[in-house]
Design a protein around this nucleic acid. Structure first.
Lengths: 245, 245
DNA sequence: CGTGTCATTGATCTCAATCAATTGGCGTGG
DNA sequence: CCACGCCAATTGATTGAGATCAATGACACG
């Protein structure tokens, strides 16, 4: 079985002085939308901005969870490994997403940068304290946890019961929704991750992903102008193929 | 693919006057452990006790979420369906577990009684209001959501990457842990659910579950004194087979 | 005892995994 | 500029784990 894991780059993390949270372009998407301008200042006082290159590890499953993060730009992959190296990518994080749930004490999964990413980092302790002071933060966090839980249920349905075509179709539709949220095209979709990441996310192999893409392409449902860009030529057909409620 | 769903029984739900929450045997396991005796009284004022027979539906995916529940006794199965009837059981709930996460607005999944169950029911609105007043409730809820999220990640790993034997072994070990939590034997395990539920939980078919059990049995790893009771004769071996960290 | 439901067991099939090249893009260095 | 190496992705041939199809066995219940 598969282990499309990628050796982590050795490049260093840079940490610089905070940019202005009030001007943050993705604030409306993030956790930070929960609090008003005065309180955002308090968040800003706690934040450290960090950058990672593609392949770098942000946090490792089982390690004590010292930080939580907001994704400012770029994509992360979250994953768990089996002792023999088989990998399950449990999700991708995009700008506005929060990293640090399911991490009371220790991280429940590892996180790596897919490409270059910019993260807003908080010390778990500081963050926890702030949450206790700002009840809105806590309830927003609960909301996020609920969304993630619902997404996890959906992914279980996909992994347990869907066919390869259905998985790929569902994945693209999910990416299309994500694109809408980020005010990008719902039809032209960039795939920042490699085939191995997609395979490990969907419980397939690289080869099956590739073959399924070919079929969808030759059926005219999608186009692949580049290997990491999909065009949903026939979104309705794709929805049928995904077998969605 | 499989649809081991079961037609829902037609028997009526009974609702009676609340028992005493302060004397509740499983309070220490439940959400209710978050608040002190005086506040438990406030919880108790809001609770309705309801009973369901095996096969009855408690809530349906997509329906507006009007209630949240605590499981007082019995087992629930949570599941999602595909349009063609394929089913994924996303989890089982045992005494002390909370039903109502991933249910902002509408239920993210359906819930059915596996056998006879006793539930403590709250109106979502009342419950939400109480949570806003008792910050400890909110943070306990977040804690629960985090645990469920971690469990969901684990289940994704199982569904995406584990073999049939590994899935069954992991399932039994998980049940054993559950048993410890409920102060039952970690070796003799009752299976309140039928084979179809197990299959749909593990992303397998009934037949594969049955065959895998036979193999584990003939290998001396487990015993099956009755079809719905397992004895973990060799827990260490089982742990090896589960390929766990 | 029939009858229905659930679980087990056996025979066969199939979809995706595995194994094995081949292709294509890209950067490096001669 | 082109040859070479590297790596990701594609494509093809074959295998295999688990699904599907089909009985059979084991209880429980009216």
């Amino acid at each position: 079985m598969s282990a499309h894991a990628r050796r982590s780059g050795a490049a260093a993390t840079r940490a610089v002085k905070p940019a202005e949270c009030l001007q943050c372009e993705i604030r409306h998407l993030a956790l930070c939308s929960a609090v008003d301008d005065p309180d955002v200042q308090r968040l800003q006082a706690l934040v450290t901005h960090v950058w990672f290159y593609g392949g770098q590890t942000i946090s490792t499953e089982g390690d004590p969870s010292e930080h939580v993060y907001n994704v400012a730009s770029g994509t992360l992959r979250l994953y768990k490994l089996l002792p023999d190296g088989r990998r399950q990518v449990t999700g991708f994080l995009y700008p506005g997403d929060f990293l640090g749930l399911a991490s009371i004490g220790t991280y429940a999964y590892s996180a790596e940068a897919v490409g270059a990413v910019h993260l807003c980092r908080f010390r778990s302790r500081d963050f926890k304290n702030l949450c206790d002071e700002l009840p809105k933060m806590n309830s927003r966090l609960l909301e996020i946890a609920n969304d993630e839980l619902a997404a996890a249920q959906e992914q279980m349905l996909l992994l347990g019961r869907k066919t390869a075509v259905e998985r790929i179709a569902s994945f693209f539709l999910h990416l299309a929704d994500q694109n809408v949220k980020l005010k990008r095209s719902p039809v032209v979709i960039d795939l920042p991750m490699r085939r191995g990441d997609i395979a490990d996310y969907l419980g397939l192999t690289i080869e099956t992903v590739s073959r399924t893409l070919r079929r969808l392409k030759s059926d005219g449902v999608i186009a692949l102008p580049e290997s990491n860009r999909v065009v949903l030529s026939d979104a309705d057909r794709l929805r049928e193929l995904a077998e969605e409620g």
